[in-house]
């Protein structure tokens, strides 16, 4: 079985982002970029499935500008077999991403598509679900455990109030939650080897995708800042303040 993993290049999660003064976006000049953490988990899981003999080939795909190839190389260094870069000059909306991945899924005859549950920049949490809708295949979002069982995949997923276990007929689409695994680090020899692994480049028009503009981001705003308050010296003072100043306890 072939596993397709979708990855995205995003601003590093430890960077404190700043909104541009003109409201056109966030400051992205000289900001550290990285693979979206949820995508890293998806890559790790795919590699583990291959190591366990449940997958034959791991193909990683990223839709973005030229610089996305850096993240595809990282995925190859971690153990993916092959990469596909879909070159676009500006970010795609989730529905267009899902349509592109559908074409990939059909073309590659992938048995399982793994994606992160959300990217930490747009925080949409949509692409896996949309891909499942377009392909009319089953979905398991927020996966914390994945087991391949013949023609099926069993997934434990994190839901409000606890956990849920689903059995999906393959091909299926699964999105990863943080607790699924602990991604490995790439070793230097593997980084060197990754340079020789195949990376195909394609475009939306080559794949027959016409982008649809569903939404326009009119403005990016700074959220209201919480001002830091005071430090109290003792438990008595804290309780007194909560009772008489903030009036949040009886």
């Amino acid at each position: 079985m072939k596993v397709l993993v979708a990855i995205k290049r995003v601003v590093d999660p430890y960077v404190k982002v700043r909104v541009k003064a003109d409201g056109s976006g966030i400051e992205d000049a000289n900001v550290k970029m990285t693979m979206n953490p949820f995508c890293e988990i998806a890559v790790e899981e795919a590699i583990r499935l291959k190591e366990a003999g449940a997958a034959d080939e791991v193909v990683v795909v990223s839709i973005g500008d030229e610089s996305s190839q850096e993240q595809l190389r990282s995925a190859l260094a971690l153990g993916a077999d092959r990469a596909i870069h879909v070159d676009v000059d500006k970010p795609c909306e989730p529905l267009s991403v899902a349509k592109t991945l559908k074409v990939m899924m059909d073309k590659e005859q992938a048995g399982l598509v793994l994606l992160g549950k959300q990217s930490i920049d747009t925080d949409n949490n949509q692409v896996a679900q949309m891909l499942a809708a377009l392909t009319e295949r089953p979905q398991a979002t927020f996966a914390s455990k994945i087991t391949i069982d013949g023609e099926y995949v069993e997934v434990e997923r994190e839901v409000d109030g606890g956990l849920e276990r689903l059995k999906l007929a393959l091909p299926a689409i699964v999105s990863t939650d943080l607790r699924l695994n602990e991604p490995r680090y790439a070793s230097l020899p593997n980084i060197m080897k990754a340079k020789r692994k195949p990376m195909d480049k394609t475009t939306l028009s080559e794949l027959g995708i016409t982008e649809k503009n569903s939404q326009t981001v009119v403005e990016i705003l700074s959220p209201p800042q919480r001002s830091s308050g005071i430090k109290v010296a003792s438990v008595e003072e804290l309780v007194e303040k909560l009772r008489n100043e903030a009036k949040v306890i009886e």
Partner: peptide
């Protein structure tokens, strides 16, 4: 978790975007 799982699947079937 119910809405996040369902809503994008619905939106894609309607060929529309989704606001999260």
């Amino acid at each position: 978790s119910f809405g996040k799982d369902l809503s994008p699947r619905l939106a894609a079937l309607l060929d529309v975007g989704q606001l999260s």
